[in-house]
Design a protein around this nucleic acid. Structure first.
Lengths: 229, 229
DNA sequence: CAATTTTTGATACCAGGTTGACGACCAAAA
DNA sequence: TTTTGGTCGTCAACCTGGTATCAAAAATTG
């Protein structure tokens, strides 16, 4: 398992390298965003650990760059614990967020969790049929059935569901959903999103007042939860 | 197996080249639509990977251009995964659609799938007789009977029905139907399509006001539904 | 030319999408 | 404790644009 650490502070780089290598990860180091992107283009990695605060290209930019062509898991580090930064980082495509200072144990735990998630989603992305409890989605035929009965979804509802399932167990921010399903120009229209999510819940949740599949992450977005994934 | 990557972002070109070459594909690169078409004219390729968003000639245009003289498989990349873009790309002749960000694993899987499909389609044939309820279609003799009585279909109506039956239970977009039955230049003429579908329904549906066989998917297209499939 | 097929025009209708109003809920501030 | 501001969920009205249908005109065919 290969991990790329992008951080401008040499001490942190060294500390992370030691902590990770002691747990049998192979570690690559980069002292700036540019150097990090360069290394990614030439060597394969399985996870990126990325500091937000860096001179020159900051973590948000690096994150966006990486996300423009790769789905590699990204774990963001920051000294600030503001919700705003968290949302911004997730909007840029980060998978998880860790506030400095943190223990090596927590870093390792989150690393394992992220990698596990990435693996399961890669396996499920190739199959055209999705199955979770009594919900079944045939992406090839565009058919959604709930415990056997087919359910009719409107185009927007179907797009939403597909995007959520493709990111199972991961938080999708309002902005991510809106820009992907509606388009860039609708990024701020949270109201429409809520209505559509509500309609979708009414169609696929067994108890729409207590949603199990589509959970809301207040002030951030929504998350599609699945045990089998 | 030779693959041509057409993308304006150097970072992505490099990443794709590495990921593909690591799996024993030969890779050619082009930084614009024009350059891509140029390369295709001088070198032979087996697959084109094409970015939708590019300055100058965009992916849709490139796709149409290629399709005007070649049947080479095309895999389209895009940042949006809206159904609208997907449909538009597929209607321009693309074979598959991949939303950024994506993992190299998924790209490879789809690449294999496309190439496999391209190979098998050369030697494909449909069964000569189709049966569903009281509708019976003999593709060999080109005869349609409804509960025993033969029904006369006009050429367009027959082509439509055949295409729908060949994709039973799958949604076919308006443009897919139009381009396949009428030709590329009629892709936008939704009106004619509706009239023909209505006529077809009047001939093969037992209750044309409540169609069971040909169902409409609003804003998307039509779907031929069959239990026996 | 006549017959059939296809396209086009006109019109009524309906589903999906958007918007606004309202209440529930939570947390921070007074 | 009460107030206040913000987010979320729900309902319903409204509007747009897609859809069905009929009929007439145009094109095609033999």
């Amino acid at each position: 398992m290969r991990i790329l650490v992008i951080d401008d502070e040499p001490q942190i780089r060294r500390a992370l390298k030691m902590g990770l290598e002691r747990n049998d990860y192979q570690v690559g180091l980069a002292g700036s965003g540019e150097e990090g992107l360069d290394k990614m283009a030439t060597e394969p990695f399985d996870l990126v650990v990325l500091d937000l605060a860096m001179p020159g290209m900051d973590g948000f930019d690096v994150c966006k760059q990486i996300r423009s062509w790769s789905q590699i898991p990204i774990l963001v580090l920051s000294v600030r614990d503001s919700e705003e930064d968290k949302i911004k980082a997730l909007d840029c495509g980060a998978d998880d967020y860790l506030t400095k200072p943190f223990g090596v144990g927590e870093l390792l735990a989150r690393t394992r969790a992220i990698i596990r998630r990435a693996k399961s989603s890669e396996a499920s992305s190739s199959s055209p049929i999705f199955n979770e409890g009594n919900l079944q989605v045939d992406f090839d035929k565009r058919i959604v059935t709930i415990s056997g009965d087919t359910v009719h979804l409107t185009p927007k509802e179907y797009d939403l569901l597909q995007m959520m399932i493709n990111n199972t167990n991961r938080v999708l921010t309002h902005r991510q959903l809106l820009t992907k399903v509606w388009g860039l120009e609708y990024a701020e229209d949270h109201h429409s999103l809520r209505v559509h999510v509500a309609n979708l819940r009414n169609k696929i949740e067994s108890d729409p007042t207590r949603p199990k599949l589509i959970q809301t992450e207040t002030r951030i977005g929504y998350r599609f939860v699945s045990s089998v994934s």
